[in-house]
Computed example of a mutant assay.
Amino acid sequence: MIKHVSCIFLIVLFFSCNSSEKTEKKVTIVDGAERYDVYQGSEMAILMRGMHAFNLELKKEVQSGTITTEFPEEFLKIHTAEFSEAKSRNKTFDHYSGQFIEAQKLVFAEDSIVPLSERYNTAINLCITCHQTECTGPIPKIKKLLIK
Rank of each mutant, 00 (worst) to 15 (best):
residue 68 T to R: 08
residue 70 E to C: 07
residue 91 K to D: 12
residue 94 D to S: 13
residue 108 F to P: 04
residue 43 E to Q: 14
residue 59 K to V: 03
residue 126 L to F: 10
residue 73 E to D: 14
residue 111 D to G: 12
residue 68 T to V: 09
residue 112 S to A: 14
residue 130 C to F: 05
residue 141 K to D: 06
residue 45 A to H: 10
residue 35 R to I: 14
residue 42 S to P: 05
residue 41 G to M: 04
residue 141 K to W: 06
residue 57 E to K: 08
residue 95 H to K: 13
residue 76 L to G: 03
residue 57 E to G: 12
residue 52 H to C: 02
residue 93 F to R: 08
residue 51 M to H: 08
residue 138 P to F: 08
residue 107 V to I: 15
residue 117 S to D: 13
residue 73 E to G: 06
residue 82 E to T: 03
residue 85 E to Q: 04
residue 77 K to L: 15
residue 61 E to P: 07
residue 130 C to N: 07
residue 25 K to H: 08
residue 115 P to N: 05
residue 33 A to S: 13
residue 70 E to L: 11
residue 85 E to R: 09
residue 88 S to R: 10
residue 45 A to K: 12
residue 141 K to M: 11
residue 91 K to C: 01
residue 34 E to D: 14
residue 97 S to P: 01
residue 122 T to R: 13
residue 45 A to G: 11
residue 108 F to C: 05
residue 76 L to S: 04
residue 137 G to L: 10
residue 98 G to M: 03
residue 93 F to W: 03
residue 128 I to L: 00
residue 79 H to Q: 12
residue 108 F to Y: 15
residue 135 C to R: 13
residue 28 T to I: 15
residue 58 L to Y: 07
residue 112 S to Q: 13
residue 88 S to F: 07
residue 74 E to I: 15
residue 109 A to V: 12
residue 88 S to E: 11
residue 104 Q to E: 15
residue 122 T to Y: 09
residue 60 K to G: 05
residue 85 E to L: 11
residue 106 L to M: 14
residue 49 R to F: 02
residue 125 N to R: 15
residue 124 I to E: 00
residue 140 P to G: 08
residue 50 G to K: 03
residue 73 E to T: 10
